[in-house]
Amino acid sequence: MQGKRIGGQARRRALRLLGAIGAGLALAAAGPAFAAWPDKPVRLIAPLAAGSAPDVIARILAHELGELWQQTVVVENRPGAGGIIGLEATRQAPADGHTLALVHASAAVVTPVTFKSARYDIERDFDTIATVGYTPIAMVANPGAPATSLAEVIEASRAKPGEVDLGNPGRTTSAHLAGELLNQQVGARLFPVPFSGNGVQAVVGGDVPYYVDGVAPLLRMVEADRVRPIAVFADRRLDGLEAFPLATDVDPGLVVTGWFVVASPAGLPEPLIEKINADVNRVLAKPEVARRFREFGTYPQPGTVAQARDFVRQEKERYAQIIQRAGIQPE
């Protein structure tokens, strides 16, 4: 006799149960030490200051994972030295799944080739587990600046090579390298001006006519009409960024984002890596998480372990090329 067809909701519950059972069996096969993971609080190291937008993303992720795992996930801020302090703390921790890191793009793939004191390699010394989110880079202008579009900014810089200043939040940040990519990709001749403090205020105050940064610190200034949106370096239009024209309308290669991945010290068993990846994706699928991410200019980036590792590898190569062409030397 033909059995009853299982409804969609019941089928999804059954698949989730089978997935959980499979993950549990895989962890048991990885060894007794991992069968009950996590059996103590998990550290999520954030190599950035408390209160920053990436720190908020880390805390959202930690809270959600803690609920899934029924275990405390503590965000541990280790800022400084371009991410070296936080990444070294992660690298030296036991590879037992109880120390993870939310690694941002600069710390992962820029600092190792721009800081002489960096001794780590993101692929050699860490296991990339999951992509978490990305933050588009955007350009804004002081309201009194002469150019009102990216094409006009480029044309102005070509007319006066090296005399048109483009502020950024710091040397070798993703935003700084977005400006360098602009120079390389379309022949702009903008002069980079790094600010170690609040560079947004520099463009608001007219210290620089143009400024490039992650969208998070720019959105409120745009909404308050204190700066003019020039372009966002994204590959498509995104919710909440409708005021920004796409830089790809000028050149399709003008895509630069900051991003975050979850990583661990190298040597974590693959079944545990797969479980953490699946749980991160479960978090990212929640509409409320996506909404809270967007408040800080970040967009969820789910994917498999293989996709995460390919992404980091490609970004590592891409940023290295921008740095080399810009003639930036390690300091």
Rank of each mutant, 00 (worst) to 15 (best):
R59M: 00
V56Q: 14
P330V: 03
S196F: 13
D279N: 12
T99N: 10
L177V: 09
V250L: 10
A28D: 02
L166E: 02
G86T: 05
L68N: 08
I230M: 01
G144W: 05
G31V: 05
G7P: 15
A29L: 03
V256I: 04
L48W: 14
F244I: 08
V73N: 06
F233Q: 04
E64T: 11
P161Q: 05
P161I: 04
Q92W: 00
L238A: 09
F311T: 10
D239K: 14
D225P: 06
R237C: 10
A35C: 07
P32Q: 14
A175S: 13
L241T: 01
P217A: 12
Q71H: 06
T131Q: 12
A234F: 06
L25W: 10
A178N: 02
F195T: 06
A33N: 09
G253D: 03
P229C: 01
S106F: 00
T99A: 08
F233P: 03
D310Y: 10
R291I: 05
D121S: 11
G24K: 14
F260P: 00
F260K: 06
G97Y: 01
I122G: 07
T128I: 15
E67R: 13
G327C: 02
V204Y: 11
G133N: 15
R189F: 14
F115I: 00
V283K: 04
A105T: 14
E88L: 01
P161E: 05
I276L: 14
V75C: 02
A202R: 12
A28W: 03
A62G: 14
A36G: 14
A93N: 05
I322M: 07
N281Y: 06
P143W: 03
L65A: 06
A156I: 11
R119H: 12
